Computed example of a mutant assay.
Amino acid sequence: MEDLHRILEAIQDNGQRSVLATITHVEGSAYRKEGALMLFFEDGSQIGVLSAGCLETDLAARVPEILAAGVSCGFVFDVQSLEHLSWGEETGCGGVIHVTMEPVNGVLLEHLRTLKDCLDQHTEVKIIKKISPDRSVSDYAFVSGKERFFGEWRGGFPQDLMELAVSEGYFIHTYYPKPRLTIFGAGPDARPLAAFAAAAGFSVTVSDWRPAWCNRSYFPDVDTLLVGFPEETVDMIQSTSNDYVVVMTHNFRRDQQLLRLLSERQLCYLGFLGPRHRMERLLNGNPAPENLRSPVGIAIGAEGPVEIAVSILAELIDTYHKNRRRTTVSYAT
């Protein structure tokens, strides 16, 4: 998933000068696609990646110059060539990658903070950058919904850009709020799933009626812990196309309650741990919700809490990206 959220959090907590790098166009194959972000701090520390190590050294070397000049720059890396790149390495990745680097000055910093506020309110935001012939960024705008507009855009903003997937001389990308995952059940097998999902970029909530299990010592990385029975906590979770639920209480009666309470919710993903025949008993002859996944997870022959967590997380990520493919990222010259 995108490094955007980690970058926005780091910018708020770190007072150093920094440079934001964005992949605006990819021809052929590449480790990361259009819209991937990376932040370079003045002291050499970094947040995110743009490649498997092919580009970062060269980009980091350009940071002092960009900070000194105070203007954006654009670079093209031809990693399909057999010739050595500028720092003497041959990658053979097979693509051409366009990258813009922008110093995070006071104005851009405020706009990034506003972007974070929008995403924290679970609002999608579209970024539109006007790309100059030298591949630098001449103007940029963030558009949230139909009303909110912020950025540095000279002259009138072409409103029709908001609906375009491809437009000459522009980079267009949609930033999404963190997908939210609620795990019902705080047993030992929920712990690796919660940790892996948080590391992958989900905002994770764990709910259980047993306070001895549902506590911060077992779930240090989650955003929220809800202690209570299903009928007490289920109304506290969100129900949108950006929300995911995994039920793994290992308690048949509680799972029945959760199936009844969650079946009518407009969730992106509703997964129940357990074999198929157990799910049939839970349904008790009723039709299965369209978003139901049971057995939960991708079939990889998983055994034990860690492997099962990997299979579930893989299915969550797969579902997330399939839903996002309806939005096209673009840059045209």
Rank of each mutant, 00 (worst) to 15 (best):
H250I: 04
A200L: 12
P177V: 01
Y170S: 00
S138H: 02
K178W: 04
I312A: 07
G74L: 10
A212D: 14
V247L: 04
L55Q: 00
A10L: 03
P220L: 13
D117P: 00
Q257V: 09
D223A: 14
T57A: 12
S86E: 12
S144P: 05
L67C: 04
F184Q: 03
C54V: 03
Y269W: 13
A314N: 07
P133C: 11
V49A: 07
I317R: 08
P211S: 04
Q257T: 12
G48A: 00
V245P: 10
Q16D: 07
D134K: 03
E110V: 02
R265E: 08
M248Y: 08
T24G: 10
C268K: 10
V310Q: 06
T327D: 08
I298Y: 15
V204I: 07
S263Q: 12
G53Y: 07
A60L: 06
C214T: 00
A69I: 03
G156M: 09
F252Q: 06
E9G: 00
R113G: 01
S138I: 05
A190Y: 05
L258S: 02
Q16W: 02
I172A: 02
K129L: 07
V222A: 01
F272C: 09
C268Y: 09
E2W: 09
T22F: 06
W153S: 10
H5Q: 07
R253E: 15
D120N: 07
H5C: 00
I97E: 10
S217W: 05
N323S: 14
D160A: 15
P64M: 02
S72H: 10
M248N: 05
H84L: 13
P211Q: 05
G285N: 12
E102V: 06
K178C: 11
F252Y: 14
W209L: 02
V104I: 13
C73K: 15
G228K: 09
G285K: 06
F142N: 13
R32Q: 14
S132N: 13
A52T: 11
M1P: 08
G28I: 13
G297I: 11
T114V: 08
E147N: 12
P179C: 10
V222W: 02
Q12C: 10
I11H: 02
H98A: 11
E163V: 08
T240G: 14
L115E: 01
S294N: 15
Y331E: 11
G44I: 04
L39P: 08
G70V: 06
E89L: 15
G155H: 09
F75N: 02
G35M: 09
R254V: 12
E307T: 09
I127F: 05
V125W: 06
D235E: 13
L273C: 07
H250F: 00
N14Q: 09
H173E: 07
R216A: 10
I7C: 02
A199M: 08
A52S: 11
Q238E: 13
V306L: 15
V246H: 05
A332P: 01
T22G: 04
T91L: 13
W87E: 04
D235A: 05
A36M: 00
M236V: 03
T249V: 09
I237H: 09
T224L: 10
A299Q: 14
Y269I: 09
A165R: 15
V63Y: 05
E307P: 03
T327L: 12
P275Y: 05
V104H: 12
E42N: 01
F75P: 00
R32N: 11
G35S: 06
S330F: 13
G201A: 05
E42L: 00
D134W: 00
V79W: 05
S136P: 01
L4M: 07
I97R: 08
